[in-house]
Simulated assay, not measured.
Amino acid sequence: MGSESEKKDLISLIQGKFSKLSKGQKIIAQFILVNYDKAAFMTAAKLGETVGVSESTVVRFANALGYSGYPLLQKSLQELIKTKLTTVQRVEMSKEYSSDFAILKKVLKADIENIKGTLDEINPSSFESVINQLLSAKKIYIVGLRSSAAIGEYLSFYLNLILDNVVLVNYGISDVFEQILKVGKDDLVIGISLPRYSKRTFELLQYAKEQGAEIVSITDSHLSPIATLSDETLITRSNMASFVDSLVAPLSVANALIVAVGMRKKEEITRYFDKLEEIWKEYKIYDEK
Rank of each mutant, 00 (worst) to 15 (best):
M1V: 15
S3M: 09
S5C: 08
D9T: 10
L10F: 13
S12Y: 09
Q15A: 09
G16T: 15
K17L: 14
K17C: 13
I28D: 07
F31D: 02
I32T: 03
L33K: 10
V34G: 09
M42G: 03
T43Y: 09
K46A: 13
K46E: 13
V59W: 14
R60I: 10
F61N: 03
L77I: 07
L77V: 05
Q78T: 12
K82E: 15
R90H: 14
R90G: 11
E96F: 08
E96W: 07
A102Q: 15
I103P: 07
L119S: 15
S125Q: 13
S129Q: 02
N132K: 11
L134G: 05
G152V: 07
E153K: 09
Y158L: 07
I162S: 02
K182R: 14
D187Y: 11
D187L: 04
L194E: 01
R196C: 10
F202D: 00
F202Q: 00
E210N: 04
S230M: 05
S230N: 07
L234G: 09
R237F: 11
D245N: 09
L247D: 03
A254D: 04
K266H: 04
I269P: 06
T270S: 08
F273L: 13
L276K: 15
E277I: 05
W280K: 09
I285G: 15
D287N: 13
